[in-house]
Design a protein around this nucleic acid. Sequence first.
RNA 1: UCCUGAGUAGCUCAAUGGCAGAGCAUUCGGCUGUUAACCGAAGGGUUGUAGGUUCGAGUCCUACCUCAGGAGCCA
Length: 444
Amino acid sequence: MRNASRDGQFRDRMTQTYIEDIARHVGETIVIKGWLYNIRSSGKLIFPQIRDGSGILQCVVFKKAVPEEVWDACQTLTQESSVIVTGAVRADDRAPGGFEMDVTNLEVVSIAEPYPITPKEHGPEFLLDHRHLWIRSKLQHAILRVRHEVIRAVRDYFDSNGFILADTPIFTPAACEGTTSLFEVNYFDDEKAYLTQSGQLYNEATAAALGRAYAFGPTFRAEKSKTRRHLTEFWMVEPEVAYATLDDIMDLAEDFLCFVAARVLANRRPELETLGRDLSKLEAIQKPFPRISYDEAARMLVDGGQAFEYGGDFGAPDETFISSKFDRPVMVHRYPAAVKAFYMKPDPMDPTKALGVDVLAPEGYGEVIGGGERASDLQFLRDQIARHELPEEAFDWYLDLRKYGSVPHAGFGMGIERCVAWMCGIEHIREAIPFPRTIYRTKP
RNA sequence: UCCUGAGUAGCUCAAUGGCAGAGCAUUCGGCUGUUAACCGAAGGGUUGUAGGUUCGAGUCCUACCUCAGGAGCCA
């Protein structure tokens, strides 16, 4: 089996050069395979800009330097036509990116029909209808590359800190946290199945098997949410650690987010600059993150004149108000148990509070991480399941975890798209995933 | 589900209740360094749908449809 990444062996056998490697080929004649991004002409001179997925390269076609059929072919090129160009690479300050190619040959692979996405402005509806083409655009291309970096950093972080990847099922027999927002699947004969809304309960099982485990996969929420922070289908990474407490998991979340931000800054700076991201906002993601209790946060809201009722969960404007008081993510812990999930461990110092934590990102990006310490007492969980009117038979396996060597344990979940949107500084989460699924949109 | 806003050329948008317009895209022509290139010309319309008011409706009224933003809920 060929390995595309190891030592670049796969790449070296290809008869093409990728634009991201162009600086290493100055003075050489190379082949670029891609698509026409834009074209400008000036009589006897044509400037086709070629994109190949790794970057954009400006080419120069001079009428007297190419065969007549190449010149004629250039006249027929339309936006997004696919082409293979051959020529010598040269550094030139006049070219975007600093390098350009003097074309000696151009082969047309396919002439594109009139391309719907022009180099001018478009509205969100039109762009989302053409998402399959929109991702070719410069900004979307940059966002997807940042997303890749975030995911790679997530995996590298856990893989290099003793965690074992143990993915949890997508089809699940029951709700983790209530049934209101579940997608029902009509396939299994015996019982109803639902698309997962969290790997949480299964992670507790894998953590008991592996010590430190994490799951990373798609998650589905049938919430009627219609905001820039919500997707119907999103990706979530969920670490779970046996013998960890709330404080341990807050340390982990803090270290983890700093690692991800540092990696994006280190490896995707050109993309961040393309996106116009204020890099100082990302450089500020440094330990220690402020840690405040729910009670302290509630006092901030009341003192700040916000319309907030003590005892309830924070709304989006509340989160934005709290996070606006800090220049880095803030961790809010010990929420009222009544507003949190049934499996949260009560605070021994104040049983009306749960040992949960939300990490609120700055700049209004909201809750990127939610987690906490899980209840380890069997009878408490039985009571909670009854109190929440959940079917106990659906949780028998989960309760087994408390019968056979129950230990303190904690974990959290991070929404990948919220993190990517935050890193990129983009307005809407739907641009942080290749093909967003929202309440009223399942195409393309 | 609720609140708010928007639907006019392929796209982005103009048009006091009085002739349906512009830029970009497309097609044709011009230009030897373009940077969302520029210059000239041409084609392109059931103004979201259905009613209503009016001498006359893109514009005012009613209902519906679609989309966007927000709330609740959440990552």
